[in-house]
């Protein structure tokens, strides 16, 4: 069974996203909404990791797989500055959150096949929050984009 591979993928992706949200929160302290919300969303990602733990305890977690990793998603190591920098950083977060989101979806498919009610309920709680994270990122980027791309110095 390869579910442990995906559990490992998800666990790692949530961790990467949490760390990246914190990075953006720190790097964009002059944008208070981004600053405070990214902190809260980082906490959410870590809660997702904790919520996964009982499932990992049951199925196990595989860090490495015989499938080679083609696309690396290591998260943000630094933040950019200025209006376009903010936009790019939020866009990177969007990519990382999309990876988390689609991984939850795959896990949900597996959970349905396994008729694993505990896992299904965790997926429902966590993936709903991940899609809200994506919606927020999109809302915030759409607001920032015209000013950053047209008027900013």
């Amino acid at each position: 069974m390869k579910l442990p591979v995906y559990l490992g993928l998800l666990h790692k992706a949530e961790g990467t996203l949490a760390q990246s949200f914190r990075q953006v929160a720190e790097g964009h302290g002059h944008e208070p909404d981004v600053h405070f919300l990214c902190q809260a969303l980082a906490d959410q990602c870590q809660e997702h990791q904790q919520a996964l733990q009982p499932i990992i305890d049951r199925y196990g977690e595989v860090d490495h797989d015989d499938e080679p990793e083609r696309l690396q998603a290591d998260g943000l190591q630094n933040t950019r500055s200025g209006p376009v920098g903010l936009l790019r950083d939020l866009q990177d977060l969007y990519l990382l959150a999309s990876l988390v989101d689609i991984t939850w979806t795959m896990i949900k498919q597996a959970a349905q096949g396994l008729r694993d009610k505990e896992l299904l309920s965790i997926v429902n709680d966590c993936d709903g929050q991940t899609s809200t994270q994506l919606k927020w990122l999109q809302t915030r980027m759409k607001q920032a984009a015209p000013q950053a791309l047209i008027a900013a110095k």
Binding site: P83, Q143, A145, P146, Q147, A151, A152, K153
Partner: peptide, 20 residues
């Protein structure tokens, strides 16, 4: 109508950044 209207605190932020 491409995004929500810019709220006051954000308007002042754009002034601070020199784009307004």
């Amino acid at each position: 109508h491409w995004a929500p209207p810019t709220h006051a605190m954000q308007i002042f932020r754009y002034v601070e950044q020199g784009s307004i």
